[in-house]
Design a protein around this nucleic acid. Structure first.
Lengths: 116, 116
DNA sequence: AGATATATATCACTTTATGACATATGTAAT
DNA sequence: ATTACATATGTCATAAAGTGATATATATCT
């Protein structure tokens, strides 16, 4: 997702789909969580299928911060860094979700009709 | 998805999540389609957000054939190569869908509760 | 005949993801 | 107080995945 300024100054959002890993992490950051907790949440939610290791986790967090889709929510605990979605981050996640749902509908409709 | 043979000979499926692109293409192959048609379907379904170019398309088709998740459905037309999910492919897609839905639920529940 | 849309394919390059490792703190048991 | 383990963050080199540009050929339309 990048924000492009049109000639007339109106903001238009040029949409790009999130990668899987970015989506998972942002999905977890609708409420304040720190990296380690996000890793566990994703693993639990996916029944152990999706595992985001520390390398992926902290690489992606850095990227999301840079985009300003998440922010450092509470640095009070020096050991745990807690993050949360920004307003822009929520918008990006919502837009992504919309497309993800469309693709899932396509797959589910197709499987149903192929009589599985 | 890889199939692992247990000591007792029972088949157990060790699950791995599909990449986005693999998922999109497999979602399109619940009915017979050729590469070019898949590209268009994905672009249309996603309202132009997701674009799979020929490089990605044919690279991934090759990979899916190798895994035997799709097969060459009808080579009658020498110009168009039509593909379809195999039984194994359907299973993989269904399993993937299950996890995708769980992650989407997490995101939607979170967004809702964050009062957006 | 020329232009455009359809259709498949490959190559070199970029982007993204990750295993292995390093570091440090909290917590529980001996 | 020491060992051991879970928690927690971080980096680096490499692997995996994705893609823009380009090439080739056929079909369709004017």
């Amino acid at each position: 997702m990048t924000y492009v300024m049109k000639k007339d100054g109106e903001n238009l959002t040029k949409t790009e789909q999130l990668t899987d890993s970015m989506f998972y992490i942002m999905a977890a950051l609708t409420e304040p969580r720190h990296g380690y907790a996000i890793m566990n949440l994703i693993e639990e939610t996916s029944e152990g299928v999706i595992k985001i290791g520390p390398a992926s986790m902290y690489t992606i967090i850095k990227k999301l911060l840079k985009q300003e889709w998440i922010y450092l929510y509470d640095g009070s605990d020096s050991r745990r860094k807690t993050y949360l979605l920004t307003g822009k981050g929520k918008e990006v996640l919502e837009q992504d979700l919309k497309i993800r749902n469309k693709m899932i509908d396509l797959a589910m409709k197709g499987l149903k009709e192929s009589g599985k």
